[in-house]
Design a protein around this nucleic acid. Structure first.
Length: 462
RNA sequence: GGCCCCGUCGUCUAGUGGCCUAGGACGCAGCCCUCUCAAGGCUGAGAUCGCGGGUUCGAAUCCCGCCGGGGCUACCA
């Protein structure tokens, strides 16, 4: 009988929700859905210095926005709760205690300074650094503060990576590492594999930065007598446009919430993220979520890191915006246009739809509806044409098609081209060089206001 | 420094010894459409496959070396 798949993401609430978290979550969800498995959200909050509850909330919010729902998590419980590491401290201490009594771990009384000195010394002698095991063989007496160190058994550690194949590491190169910090908190290197084992995680899907951490964790799992996960999958990193690792400080695109604020559609972001590091081997670029679930496979994920590219995301997002039906688009636009009622937004959509690659751009096209532009000074003959427009518009039915027809007629009579005729109208109405087509620009504005702005421009108040 | 991963147009990528005079997508340029801006249609520029050696009748594809980038090597995760 096939074991049921259990996967997890384990973000730490040490800052805004990260793009990488979304990416990793996506791959986990894709795999879980594919195999009818369970997706677990665990909060890895063992860094008491940097953890903040509001950051945890941000993680929930971002993941929900992306519709990457979890089956078990801190907020909804599950068979292996609690799902917050800070609430599982007893577990880790207990397991560390077991290792201690089995002689597989030992207390370390070294100070950070002493450790630093060891490291420096090794560097000086050009020798690869490994902890000296001083506290194993000859612990200093009379010290109260201690951490717990794992006694690395060495040897060869192998495991299966679903994207890279069979991996092999020489554990003799790995020094004894800390599993419980002197503040009593476990390190990531300890808490993570313990939880994965206890929570019966079958496949660990995470970022490539953890590839070299895997042997550490595997040795721990073995030492504790736990069952190993069936397989790992280390996904390529998302790089910034300059090729550097995405940094929260230097790269705004690392901040997940920013995408929502700018009006990227969650399904478009997911589509882009899926493509960044994976491809189906066919020319298809746009996928529904269900298609992704169906087509995704670890064999086709990239081994090298991929640079984040706004342009491509913008294109995908534009494609998604254009396929949304009008009422749905209007609904999504509402929060970006608090000054407009839904009816107005809906009327703008046919013209707006092809002009946005992100929702926030709607503001640039529509802000003339709630803010009055400063009237330009018109040349006499331009002023004349504006007056002609006013005449044409005065009694016309106030909707785009009729406005367009009336204006076309006025253009005919004016003897100049559409460009020359419409440009000043656009300027007078919006104060901008670029707007929706002129008949929409007019129709969206109440007739009185439109005519008022045109009128005002023809007789400046000197 | 040690260990690990990686290296095809600007970017994301296809490619697993001959179908590759290296394909697609985004972006870019030109044209068409057009009241502006988009969208759409058409056309085009753009990679001697990081470099150097091999192996082979034949290599982007296999082997070795080098270079470059990234990750881990923390009482961060």
């Amino acid at each position: 009988m096939a074991v049921s798949v259990r996967v997890r993401i384990a973000p730490s609430p040490t800052g805004f929700a990260h793009l990488g978290t979304a990416s990793t979550a996506l791959y986990n969800v894709l795999f879980a859905r594919q195999r009818g498995g369970t997706f677990v959200l665990r909060i890895d909050d063992t860094d008491i210095e940097r953890n903040r509850p509001e950051y945890e909330l941000l993680i929930y919010e971002s993941l929900r926005w992306l519709d990457l729902g979890w089956d078990e998590g801190p907020d909804r419980g599950g068979p292996h709760q609690p799902y917050r590491q800070s609430e599982r401290l007893d577990q880790y201490r207990e397991q560390a205690e077991r290792l201690l009594t089995d002689g597989k771990a030992y207390r370390c009384y070294c100070t950070p300074e002493e450790l630093e000195a060891e490291r420096k010394q090794a560097q000086l002698e050009k020798r690869p650094y490994k902890y000296s095991r001083r506290c194993l063989t000859n612990p200093p007496a009379g010290r109260a503060v201690s951490a717990v160190r794992f006694k690395v058994p060495g040897g060869e550690v192998t495991f299966t990576d679903m994207v890279r194949g069979e991996m092999k590491f020489d554990a003799d190169l790995i020094g004894d590492f800390i599993i419980i910090k002197s503040d009593g908190y476990p390190t990531y290197q300890f808490a993570s594999p313990v939880d994965d084992a206890v929570m019966k995680i079958t496949h660990v899907i995470r970022g490539e930065e953890h590839l070299s951490n895997t042997p550490y964790q595997l040795m721990l799992i073995d030492a504790l007598g736990y069952e190993r996960p069936i397989a790992y999958a280390h996904m390529p990193l998302i790089l910034a446009h300059d090729g550097a690792k995405l940094s929260k400080r230097r790269h705004p695109e690392a901040n997940l919430i920013l995408f929502r604020e700018q009006g990227y559609l969650p399904e478009a972001l997911l589509n882009y993220l899926a493509l960044l590091g994976w491809n189906p081997g066919t020319p298809q670029e746009l996928f529904t979520f269900d298609e992704l679930v169906q087509k995704f496979s670890f064999e086709r994920v990239q081994h090298a890191g991929a640079r984040f590219d706004w342009e491509k995301l913008n294109w995908i997002n534009g494609e998604y915006i254009r396929t949304l039906d009008d009422s749905e688009l209007a609904r999504r636009l509402q929060s970006f246009l608090p000054n407009l009622d839904v009816a107005t937004i809906e009327r703008a959509i046919p013209a707006l739809k092809t002009r946005m690659h992100k929702l926030a751009q709607a503001v640039d096209y529509l802000d003339y509806l709630w803010s009055d532009p400063t009237p330009p000074v018109l040349e006499p003959d331009t002023s004349e044409r504006v007056r002609a427009a006013i005449d044409a518009l005065k009694d016309v039915s106030w909707e785009p098609a009729a406005i367009e027809a009336a204006l076309e007629k006025a253009v005919q009579q004016s003897g100049v081209g559409k460009g020359k005729f419409y440009t000043p109208l656009r300027d007078v109405l919006t104060g901008k060089k670029v707007s929706l087509p002129i008949h929409y620009t007019l129709a969206l504005l109440p007739r009185e206001i439109a005519l008022f702005r045109l009128q005002r421009a023809t007789n400046p108040p000197d």
